[in-house]
Structures are given as structure tokens and as C-alpha cells.
Write a protein that binds this DNA or RNA. Structure first.
Lengths: 153, 153
DNA sequence: CCATATAATTAAGCAGACTTAAATATTAAA
DNA sequence: TTTAATATTTAAGTCTGCTTAATTATATGG
């Protein structure tokens, strides 16, 4: 097996494990909180940057502007986002997370990554350092790829 | 920052990047193929092991046995799974993937992991080896955690 | 054998997220 | 200024995946 094949198969295996574990916590949390996929996507997106434009957000999520508008209305009602008129162009709305919205994102991430605590307990300090170092490398290389927006999900 | 904190924050960061990238390809593929979350969950589950019992599968997916039955009917119509009577207990059905079903799972994984090719192109052979080694460690440690069923998603 | 329990399916209906189309407000261009 | 384009919202309806309840078939225990 070439280094390339090994790399690919290891990554493949690992992604399956981590996706599986993470999705469990994630779905459970979302369902519990009554958040749709679009809502989660919006919250994550806004957690990385504020966003101008309902239609634009809709495109990002792959839904119509009407759907985006309705979904945002729910998030506003829940007090998770702020929706204000853009003074530059008063047809548009500026969107941002409220404090409560940040909290929800944070909790959702914890729900998704909670199993890491268990994993971490099985690792020596030495191993953790080694892992941190390599992951840091992967992260840096990932950043060099053409960056679509982050925070989709 | 302690090794523990560093480990956690690196992992956190990495999971966000990889989940985001993977979910994009994944959702897109699923929508394109007209596969619901339950269907995808079923296909992945069956790709790891055959399964006996519609109700049991439903529990695994978090839906009623009626919902599971209906969803399975679609998958049978699509030719993605086989559903046969269990000779041990003829009330139950044995479920397994067809060749076509395996193909769909495989493609879905590719759609999810396609971006790894780009990442891989940015890495030296040396780096790939290093990464493979560490990921292997993580995988092994993950396996030691109490294993719920694999193949959820 | 009969009564009860269990598995899968079918039927009917509900809820949520989506769609298109129309209405309103604002901006840009002729 | 008038006309056209753009952004959002509202209204009405559709579609999908789910639910509960009823039905059928098989297994099990008295």
C-alpha cells in the first residue's frame, strides 16, 4: 500500500468513525431543540461572520428566499438572531447572532464533540501532544484549499 | 495551554472543518439521489452488517416501525436493498444491500470525501505518513470506547 | 387448541419545510 | 420623474416523512 493509499484509507476510516459519533450527538441536540437543518446551518454560518441578505443566505443554504425569510422569522422569535435593516441598502437585512444564539451554537458543538472526552481519557499526554501537532498540520493545509464559507453545519 | 486543552481545541477546530466540508458533498449527493436521512442511515448501517428486523432498524433510526417499513419499501423499489423473510422466525424480515445499494454507499462516501484529494495534493509523502500513523492511533483508541453500532450516517 | 404476544404492513392523517406567486418597499437607470 | 430591477415578506398550497390505529401473519405459553 502506497503512502497515498494508506493516507486515504486511514482518513476514510477515521471520517466514518468521527462523522458517525458526531452526528449522533448533533442530530439529537437539534431535534431536542426543535432546530431544522436550515436553522442549524444559519446559526453556524452566523457564528463565523455576520451576514447581509436573506436571499443570499437562502442561496447558501440551497433554499428559496421565501423559505429563508420564514426560517429567519422563527429564529428571531426564538431570540437566536438579530435581523436589522441595512442602512446602506434599506431593502436588505443584516443578520447576526444574539448572545442566546451563540450559546446554542456552543452547546450544539459540545453535543457533537462530547465523545472526545472519552477518547481523551484513553490517551497519554505524550499521545495528545503528538495528535495535536499533526492535526494542526492538517488544519493549516486545509486552510490553503480554496475556502468556501465556513460554518455550513 | 495544557496538552489537554490544546488537544481539545485542535480537535474541535478540525471537526468543524471536516464536518463542514464533508456535509456539503454529502447533503448534495443525498438530495440529488432523492435519499432521505433515514434511507441514508439504513444504507450505511446495512453496509456494515446485515440486519434482521424492521422494528429494530426503526429503533436504531429513531422512528416507528411503520415509518421504517414504508421507507424500506422505497429502498426495495429502488433496488437498493433486499428484504427477505427470516426462516428462523417468519414474522421478521432480513435486510441486506444489493449490489446497487453498495454502489450508492460507495459513491456517497466519495462525494463526502472528495475534498481529501485536494488536501492530499498539498501534502508531502513524509507528511502523509506522519498523518496516517497518528490517525491510526486515534482510530485504535476510538475503537476501545464502548462501541455503539457503526454506520449511522 | 386457544389466547396472547410479537412483527410487519397498510391506511389515514398530520406537521414542517419547502415551493411559487403576489404584495410591498427601496434602489438604480433611462 | 417614470420605469425597471432588486430584496424581503406574506399567502396559499404541495410534498415528504412521520405518527397512530387497524390488519394480517406467525410464534409462544397455558
Amino acid at each position: 500500500m502506497s503512502p497515498q493509499d494508506l493516507f486515504y484509507s486511514m482518513f476514510h476510516e477515521w471520517m466514518e468513525i468521527s462523522m458517525h459519533r458526531s452526528m449522533r450527538g448533533y442530530m439529537h441536540y437539534a431535534r431536542e431543540k426543535g432546530l431544522s437543518r436550515s436553522m442549524i446551518g444559519t446559526l453556524f454560518h452566523l457564528s463565523h461572520r455576520d451576514h447581509a441578505g436573506v436571499t443570499h443566505l437562502g442561496e447558501h443554504l440551497g433554499v428559496s428566499s421565501a423559505a429563508a425569510s420564514q426560517m429567519l422569522e422563527h429564529l428571531v422569535e426564538e431570540g437566536l438572531i438579530q435581523r436589522t435593516e441595512d442602512p446602506e441598502d434599506r431593502r436588505m437585512k443584516k443578520l447576526s447572532l444574539t448572545e442566546k444564539g451563540y450559546q446554542v451554537v456552543k452547546e450544539s458543538v459540545s453535543a457533537r464533540l462530547g465523545w472526545l472526552d472519552e477518547l481523551s481519557a484513553n490517551l497519554s499526554e505524550e499521545e495528545k501532544n503528538q495528535i495535536s501537532k499533526v492535526i494542526n498540520l492538517i488544519i493549516e493545509k486545509s486552510r490553503e484549499l480554496d475556502l468556501p464559507d465556513k460554518g455550513e453545519c
